[in-house]
Write a protein that binds this DNA or RNA. Structure first.
Lengths: 115, 115
DNA sequence: TTTATATATTCCATTTTAACGATTTACTTG
DNA sequence: CAAGTAAATCGTTAAAATGGAATATATAAA
């Protein structure tokens, strides 16, 4: 039950759902995500931790950067199922589409104030 | 997006998830639900409203009682999918099993303080 | 070893959520 | 119509979630 609630809570916030949708395209570092969503770096980092704790996302370091990507779902069946659902959900959402449009132009090397 | 968030939020609370699991067995009135979960009548009523607003549950009046049952899922595809998932999720959860054990003994006509 | 940089963490203010008791509403029945 | 009953709503309080600025941590580079 606790694990299920943790997954539902993680997906109860618009910014976190947006992150999940962005990560469907490619792994992203924290600064790319905060840039895309237009939020503070600390806010992005905290949201990603919540997604990671729910097994929806995983991270691996690449030097100074930390890359986040969708989890493979081996951790929790609830998370795995929701990751699958989200692949074909919200694709026609206006907010999501706007983010997906600007995502290709987002590059970690061109971001000014990273934190 | 708003609809999706509403469903996720609705399923982010243990008492509401318990209600969903109980309603898999049979329709229940507010006083049966509050009795089963051991919460106040006003609390049960509010939670049910949140589930209903998310299209996870529907209600129909039967005289003085209001019966709640699982939604048929026609309102929201997100709700429909989660209703389906919940059918085979949490069946082995200890808290849920305890509730399912006492449910057969719960009858609206034998409840003392209904509100 | 010093400096720079990306991320994580802490702190604080604000908003949202959950719970209960009390009251109101809606319906039934005497 | 009056009394009784189940559910919904209101008012209040405590806990949790969210956001950003500031700080700490960790790694890379000079």
């Amino acid at each position: 039950m606790k694990i299920f609630i943790r997954v539902m809570k993680a997906l109860s916030d618009p910014n976190r759902v947006k992150m999940m949708k962005l990560l469907q395209h490619r792994p992203l570092c924290v600064c790319e995500i905060k840039e895309c969503l237009g939020i503070a770096q600390s806010t992005a980092s905290k949201h990603l931790k919540i997604l990671e704790d729910a097994d929806l996302v995983r991270s691996f370091k690449d030097g100074l950067w930390v890359n986040y990507s969708l989890s493979d779902g081996n951790g929790s069946p609830f998370a795995a199922s929701m990751i699958g659902n989200l692949k074909h959900w919200l694709g026609n959402d206006a907010q999501i589409q706007r983010l997906e449009n600007i995502l290709p132009g987002i590059d970690r090397h061109n971001i000014v104030g990273k934190g």
